[in-house]
Nucleic acid binder design. Structure first.
Lengths: 154, 154
DNA sequence: CGATATTGATCAGTATGCTGACTATCAGTA
DNA sequence: TACTGATAGTCAGCATACTGATCAATATCG
């Protein structure tokens, strides 16, 4: 039988598992309570003020049904706001709050530290190579998941 | 701001997301209904008959609380059995059923196909290198998650 | 214009994964 | 042997992720 360690799918699960654990530990150590998904969403809202949920989902490759709950929690924590759009009454415009901005700023060192820790077994060059290969594999498989990455059309 | 594509954590999530989608699509295409986690558990039970749940968890790096539900579903599908251990009345001994063996055998081509598809953007050499780097990063971070990989002591 | 298709958001249901708590049992030791 | 600590399994609760459905609103096209 093929060993688990020869299965890219298994390795993907393990690496992701570790990445999440490291992220949560670093962020909690900094005194915050924010998940990787919530962080990515919040940072993307800050970079694209007023975007709607589908666009946000496309920018970070979330399923649109997952976004609903994530935004719920960001709003509940006072980090983001969800407003009805005036241009399209189906859509909600997302904004980051001052509190959200403060949180993002203070949390950034912990997030960057987490990225280093999850690569701590690799040299700088190996880390770069790992990211390059992941990017390449992801690009080729982008449309195979229900939540592909979608660039915004200007 | 750092781009998502420079964050190993984000890339890990994306690659895992695609890996799961590909696995499910291939397995469903072969006429089966088994998740990646259920497959790994079943294959490990087959390779280690009579093992208990904690040992199984250690072999594939699951959290022990996650195993309970996974086994529930394998048993419910008639692919595995959970019996009380005679040596330790706290423990359950896990066995694969004939139906489970049949399923594993028939599903293997789909699983292997899935592993190829999720690397389809990479050359053979690049795929090997990606797996090598993932293994190395995982080994260094093994103890950072609640569910580390644990080898069996003979 | 009006029928049809598409889109944004949500919801119900299911399956990982985790934290923390709890029970039952086992192991080691004073 | 009685006490203490560790261990196997489960459970409640929460947060991703997905499938598939539904509703409201918008776009498109005959």
């Amino acid at each position: 039988m093929k060993d688990n360690n020869d299965m890219p799918g298994h390795l993907a699960r393990r690496f992701q598992q570790i990445a999440v654990a490291v992220f949560l530990a670093e962020v909690e150590g900094a005194g915050f309570d924010l998940t990787p998904v919530q962080y990515a969403a919040l940072a993307t809202i800050k970079a694209n003020p007023g975007l709607d949920q589908v666009t946000l989902a496309g920018l970070i490759a979330y399923d649109r049904t997952t976004i609903t709950g994530v935004i719920d929690r960001l709003v509940q924590k006072g980090l983001a706001e969800r407003r009805a759009s005036s241009r399209d009454r189906r859509a909600r415009e997302l904004e980051i709050t001052d509190e959200g901005r403060r949180t993002l700023r203070k949390i950034t060192p912990a997030v960057e530290s987490a990225q280093r820790i999850m690569l701590r077994g690799l040299s700088a060059k190996e880390g770069e190579e790992l990211m390059r290969l992941l990017r390449k594999a992801i690009a080729a498989g982008n449309d195979l998941s229900r939540a592909p990455l979608r660039d915004v059309q200007a």
